Simulated scan of single mutants.
Amino acid sequence: MFYALCTFIVLVFGFSAAEEVPLPPITLCKRNSVNFDDCLKTAIEEAWPQFIKGLPEFDFPPLEPINYESGTAIYEGGVIHAVVNVTNFIGEGLPQTHFLAVKSHFSDQIFHLEIDTQIPKITGSGDIVGRGNVAGFPINGKGPFNLSMEDLETKWIIKGPVANDIWTVEDFYAAPSIKKMILP
């Protein structure tokens, strides 16, 4: 899922920087403009429905439903430490993503982009293997899962070098805050 989101951001930024758009017209942003961040937010909002449907000309799959083959998440928070491996995840809800704010920074040939998002609800299922500890007590588990998350707010932090008008994303970090989660 993170790969798909990174690709989405790279394509939107690349279209804005290059001012060549092989897709239906989207808002183009000039990096040195006073309202560059607002323009990027508008461009992302306009392009999002196209990415939800998928872009076969770029070998970009649809994001609804999102199919995530496998990945690992590490959680370190106070007394909780966990490593979770998820496979065969299928989720729904990304079309309802709201882009709250976009903030960019360009320094020493590194482009840094922060995108604040809100998603009303994501549902999904897959397989999980988890291990860790809570206040020193070990936790382990594996098996299929169903999940419903509501009112997610996430800051995506994406950065990497720019050379020849091409942004190479080297880091993607998402810090989600979930108001309600149900594991039926």
Rank of each mutant, 00 (worst) to 15 (best):
residue 13 F to I: 14
residue 16 S to W: 02
residue 18 A to T: 13
residue 19 E to Y: 03
residue 19 E to W: 01
residue 20 E to I: 07
residue 20 E to T: 07
residue 21 V to H: 12
residue 25 P to G: 09
residue 27 T to N: 09
residue 29 C to R: 06
residue 30 K to Y: 05
residue 30 K to V: 07
residue 31 R to E: 12
residue 32 N to G: 11
residue 32 N to I: 06
residue 32 N to H: 09
residue 32 N to F: 11
residue 35 N to K: 11
residue 35 N to I: 03
residue 37 D to A: 10
residue 37 D to W: 06
residue 37 D to I: 10
residue 38 D to S: 14
residue 38 D to H: 12
residue 39 C to P: 00
residue 41 K to N: 09
residue 43 A to W: 02
residue 45 E to V: 15
residue 46 E to P: 11
residue 47 A to H: 01
residue 47 A to L: 01
residue 47 A to W: 00
residue 49 P to C: 00
residue 49 P to D: 03
residue 50 Q to T: 06
residue 51 F to L: 06
residue 51 F to Y: 01
residue 54 G to Y: 03
residue 54 G to N: 00
residue 55 L to R: 14
residue 55 L to D: 02
residue 55 L to K: 14
residue 59 D to T: 11
residue 60 F to H: 08
residue 60 F to E: 13
residue 67 N to M: 13
residue 68 Y to E: 05
residue 71 G to L: 05
residue 72 T to V: 15
residue 75 Y to K: 13
residue 75 Y to R: 12
residue 76 E to Q: 15
residue 76 E to P: 00
residue 79 V to N: 07
residue 80 I to C: 05
residue 81 H to T: 15
residue 82 A to W: 07
residue 86 V to R: 03
residue 87 T to W: 01
residue 90 I to N: 09
residue 92 E to A: 10
residue 92 E to G: 01
residue 96 Q to R: 05
residue 97 T to S: 05
residue 98 H to D: 09
residue 98 H to C: 08
residue 98 H to Q: 14
residue 99 F to C: 11
residue 99 F to W: 08
residue 101 A to N: 15
residue 102 V to A: 04
residue 103 K to S: 06
residue 104 S to P: 02
residue 106 F to Y: 10
residue 106 F to K: 01
residue 108 D to N: 15
residue 111 F to H: 00
residue 111 F to M: 02
residue 112 H to G: 00
residue 112 H to S: 14
residue 113 L to T: 00
residue 114 E to G: 11
residue 117 T to S: 05
residue 118 Q to T: 03
residue 119 I to A: 10
residue 121 K to Y: 08
residue 125 S to D: 04
residue 126 G to H: 05
residue 126 G to T: 12
residue 126 G to L: 00
residue 127 D to L: 13
residue 128 I to K: 00
residue 129 V to A: 13
residue 131 R to V: 10
residue 134 V to Y: 01
residue 134 V to L: 13
residue 135 A to R: 09
residue 135 A to Q: 08
residue 137 F to T: 13
residue 138 P to S: 08
residue 139 I to D: 04
residue 140 N to W: 08
residue 140 N to R: 14
residue 142 K to L: 12
residue 143 G to V: 00
residue 145 F to R: 01
residue 150 E to C: 11
residue 152 L to G: 02
residue 153 E to Q: 14
residue 154 T to Q: 05
residue 158 I to H: 01
residue 159 K to I: 02
